[in-house]
Every structure is written in C-alpha cells, then in structure tokens.
C-alpha cells in the first residue's frame, strides 16, 4: 500500500468521522475535531518559525554568508515584548510593539482604504442614468443610485423616519434585505460547493482504492 493510498484513506475516514456529527455528537467526531485542532496548531507553529521567523529575521540577523547585523536585534526585542503580555509586571512593554504595528498599519492603509472603499465607490455612483445604452442598463443605474441614496437615508438617525424620509428609508431597508438575501444565496452555494468537493474526493479518489469505479 503506497503512502498516497494511506493518505486518501486517512482523509476519507476523517471526513466520515466529521460528517457523523450530522447524526449526533459522537466520539468519532470528537476525535477528528481534536486531531484537527492539535495538528493545525502544531503545523502553524512550525510554519511560522520556518517560513516567517527564520527567513525574515534570523537569516537577516545572522546572514548565511557570515557576519552579524545588530540592527535586526530591534525587531527581535520588539517581538519579545509581545510575549511579555504573559507576565503581568512587564505587560506594558507589549504596548510599544502594538503601537508600532497599529501606527504602521494605519499609515499604510488609511489613505488606500479611503480611496478604494469610499472615494472610488462614490465616484462610481455618480453616473449618467443612460450610461450603458440599453434599457437594462437604465434600470440597473436607477436601482443603484436609488439604492445608495435610500440606503444612506436609512442609516441617518438624526431625523425621525416619517413621511417622504420614512418612505425612502423603507426603500433603503428593502433593498438592503434584497442584498442580504443575495448574500445568503451565495453563502449556500459556497457551502454546497465544499460538500461537492469532498464528495468528489470520496467518490472518485477513495472508492477506487477499493476497486469501486463510478
């Protein structure tokens, strides 16, 4: 029996153990769940050391071609500070590292996010209603502009939602519900896709190891 076949059998048996939860909670499910959590934790620790810590820090502190780069002690010390959260007396030092992470992250992301998620989207909403040409584009553009305006009205809470304002807010929440429905539909499709993927594995990779070819 080759390692590949052993791998397929392990994958298949663990899949069946996990699916057994659909009947009711049972020791096979618990075993597979705990095995997954433990294996994942172990895998990620080793992965982080070998693929993040060693190439991005250790090999720069002590390059393979020789020498020692003391400047790389700075990120090392800052990383160590993060672990001080486990020692209450020294926990405050971790704030230095966190401040650096938050500051750098915000500096890089704020303008980019504003441009991508706000300005470009607003710009995309300012369109000529007839843009596109066909009647379908007309209707789409009207729905989009109405949806954006009414959606914003719904989230404006400084004026009571009555009269025309209330009507617009109702249109807004209705369109939001339609969007949530579409989103739920996509979520269902995603979950079924995962089931299909695993079923394809069981039918076309696992069963043939027992001589069953569909």
């Amino acid at each position: 029996m080759s390692w590949e076949v052993i791998g397929i059998w392990l994958g298949a048996l663990l899949s069946l153990c996990l699916y057994s939860f659909l009947y009711k909670d049972n020791p096979f499910y618990k075993f597979a769940e705990h095995l997954f959590v433990g294996m994942s934790a172990g895998y990620w620790v080793i992965y982080a050391i070998m693929n993040v810590l060693v190439p991005n820090w250790w090999q720069k502190l002590v390059p393979l071609e020789g020498g020692f780069q003391p400047i790389w002690l700075v990120p090392g010390v800052l990383s160590l500070f993060m672990l001080f959260r486990l020692i209450p007396k020294l926990a405050g030092l971790s704030r230095l590292s966190l401040a650096l992470i938050v500051g750098t992250g915000a500096g890089i992301s704020i303008t980019a996010m504003l441009q991508t998620r706000a300005l470009a989207q607003v710009n995309g909403t300012i369109i000529a209603l007839g843009q596109g040409g066909g009647w379908f584009d007309w209707v789409s553009n009207i729905i989009m502009v109405t949806g954006v305006v009414c959606g914003l009205v719904y989230f404006f809470f400084s004026k009571s939602h009555t009269g025309v304002f209330g009507g617009a807010a109702n249109v807004g929440i209705t369109l939001l519900m339609v969007a949530f429905g579409a989103s739920f539909g996509y979520t269902v499709m995603a979950r079924i896709s995962l089931l299909i993927g695993q079923t394809q594995f069981l039918l076309f990779e696992w069963l043939p190891t027992m001589g069953i070819h569909l």
Binding site: T116, A120, Q121, N123, G124, M144, A179, A182, S183, Y186, T187, M189, A190, S193, I196
Partner: peptide
C-alpha cells in the same frame, strides 16, 4: 473568489476597479 465573498466584491466591478470576477464554483 469564494461564493461567500462574491457579493462584497461586486461593487468593485461596477466602478471598474475589478476587470472581472469568478464567483464560487459557478
């Protein structure tokens, strides 16, 4: 992208920030 995340990426299509998108298995 996965089907779950497709709806949140559709706005980028209408603004032209995304030239095309494959949503889920479909």
């Amino acid at each position: 992208c996965t089907a779950v995340s497709a709806p949140q990426l559709y706005p980028y299509l209408s603004t032209g920030q995304l030239i095309g998108l494959l949503g889920g298995l479909k």
